[in-house]
Structure formats: C-alpha cells, structure tokens
Design a protein around this nucleic acid. Structure first.
Lengths: 166, 166
DNA sequence: ATTGTAGCTTGCAAAAAGATAGTAACTTCT
DNA sequence: AGAAGTTACTATCTTTTTGCAAGCTACAAT
C-alpha cells in the first residue's frame, strides 16, 4: 500500500483508503462500533485474526487517531482500545456499507439489520445531502475542486466533468 | 484475503469487504464513478497501477457484477468496463467515505467537494435513516439479527447489545 | 516497413500476510 | 507453594500477494 502518485493522496477517498482501507481494519472497526469490543483478545477471538496482524492493525488505527490505547490496569499492565470521536464518526460509513451489502450482496436475505435504539424500528441507511436531504446518486452529484485542490487536481476534475456529462 | 470464519462471511460488512475491500478496487470505482472512466489505459494512467494488478482487479470487479466488460470495437477487439447498476449504487458509499475524509483526514482543507448537478450547490453527505431522515450514529442505532441470521450470529448479537448498552 | 495504440500476459523479486510458538507479568485455584 | 490460567503481545517462519519490467497480439496510421 504505497501512495505513489501525489494526486492519489490528495484525493480524500485515497486518504480514507490509506487509513482504513484494508480487510482487517474495517472488520476491527465494525466489531468496535457494532459490538462494543475494546480488548485485544476480544478482537482476536471475534475475528479469528492472527495476533501479530491484530497488533499491527490496532497500532496503525491508534496512530491514525481512531482508537485510544488506554491503560485500564496498572498491575498487571493491561491496555484496551477505545474508539475516539474520529473512530466513532466512522460508523456512518460502516452502515452505508452494510446497506449496500444487504441490497446487493445478500441474495438469500439479510442476516444483519439496523434498528433504532429504543423503539427498535428498522433503519435503512441512505446517503443524502445534509442540506436538502435528497439522496446522493451518481447522476445528480458532481465532484468539484475544493479550496485546497492543486492545479493538477483541478485539471483532472475539468476533464472528469466533461466525461460524466455524456 | 480469505474468508476463514463462517460468521465472518455472514456479516454484510465482511461481504462488502470481500468484494471491494482493497486499496485498488475502491480507487478504480472512484475513478469510474466520479470521473466516468471506462478504458483499461485510462485507469492505468489515472491510478499509476501496474497493468497486471489492474487486469486482476477489473476481472474481479467484473465477476462480482460491478462492471460489465463490453466489446466496443470488433476489429480490433477492444473492451471497456462499464459500471452496472450494482456498481453505480456503490456511489453513496464512496461519497460517505469522502465526507468522512474531508471531516477528519484533511486538516489543511478539502481538495475535493461534491456539488449538486445543475445548480452547483455544495453537497455534504450524511448517512440517515431512509424513513425518518434522522442521522445514523453509533449512539442511536443498534444491530439486530435479520431473517437469515444463523444461530451463532444471533448469539453474538445478543452479547453485542449488552456490551453497547453500558 | 515502421511506428503507435489498446489491452492485456508472463516471469520474477520484494513485500505483506498468516500460522504457530513463545514470552512477560501477573492472578487464581488447589 | 506449585500449577494452571489470563492478557497482551513479540518472534520466527512459511505462504501469498503485490508490483515492476518486459513482452505480446492485433490492428491502424504514416
């Protein structure tokens, strides 16, 4: 996973992929977010992941600021991994992914659903514009350069707009 | 990337990760969705990816039904990769990811934004419940077993609910 | 006839992932 | 007191995946 091209790392999508874009990271976050896991051995058992892999991923996620490595026992020294605000804010992405998978990747029916806390009413995730609450689809939304876009990025976005228009 | 544990592949999240959960797949989809790319060499140049990698990923994504490999020239035989409905529906996930990255991974400011087609009004992606249009957060949504959940899955979800409650 | 274009495939080295075993520092059970 | 966990890892080794460079096929254009 090398961010070779400069414009690649400039794209927010590529940045996200750098931080959480691998198999285990997303699955670890899923367990932390959805099941409230915090301990090394909880993740280990839940995922069936090799301990060296888990150690590496947790370290990376902690360094990226999604988990806080917190001492919960002085003697013996024991650490747990608690989601930060940045980590908890990843929840919507996970639910969007679950929504997608339930729609397209579960032909035999869903085995996991979302429900409103309290009422238990079913929740179907939808990605909308925060202002208008209109669903976001490939046909009604364009990408544009942000304030910090480089010249190269602006150039590529210009050609992108032309391509999408037809 | 092996789906070792059975309960792992039962989780929609794990399934999604199996299909699109790697570096290049998401970046390829990003370019197809956001910039409208379809040709092998367009992806190659845009991503700086090695051709064997690109061939493998495109093949996998085509087999997974996100792209259709379409002949666009008989002599010489030339193929392009066109997003299917299943592929285009991945767009919301990508925008959710972009939203997350712009919030947390771009301290110096965003270089890529979303805009409404036509009006050009800025679009901020939010993941909400399709019915109530309330934002989905880790604090107001639980996971519950779906109709097709296995016994093991139900068991794990039961302990999950308890863990999250505190 | 040579160059160029598009879409790959092959071979090989390097990097990453994964299984297994082991360690450190305790606590608890007998 | 000794043996057997528990928790959170690290170390070592094997397997798998990745990525680069090069080549290749089938054609079009010059």
């Amino acid at each position: 996973m090398q961010p070779k091209l400069a414009p690649l790392t400039e794209c927010p999508c590529a940045r996200a992929v750098e931080t959480v874009g691998e198999w285990w990271s997303i699955l670890i976050l899923r367990d932390a977010l959805l099941r409230g896991l915090t301990r090394f051995d909880e993740f280990e058992r839940s995922l069936g992941i090799a301990p060296n892999m888990l150690a590496r991923r947790l370290k990376h996620l902690a360094e990226s600021g999604l988990f806080e490595r917190r001492l919960y026992s002085e003697r013996p020294k024991r650490y747990e991994y608690v989601l930060t605000e940045k980590g908890r804010d990843f929840f919507p992405v996970v639910t969007a992914l679950i929504g997608y998978a339930n729609r397209h990747l579960a032909p035999e029916g869903a085995s996991l659903l979302l429900a409103e806390r309290g009422s238990g009413a079913p929740v179907i995730p939808a990605v909308v514009d925060a202002a208008t609450l209109q669903p976001i689809t490939v046909d009604n939304v364009d990408i544009i350069a942000g304030p910090r876009a480089s010249a190269g990025m602006r150039e590529r976005l210009a050609t992108a707009a032309r391509a999408k228009a037809n």
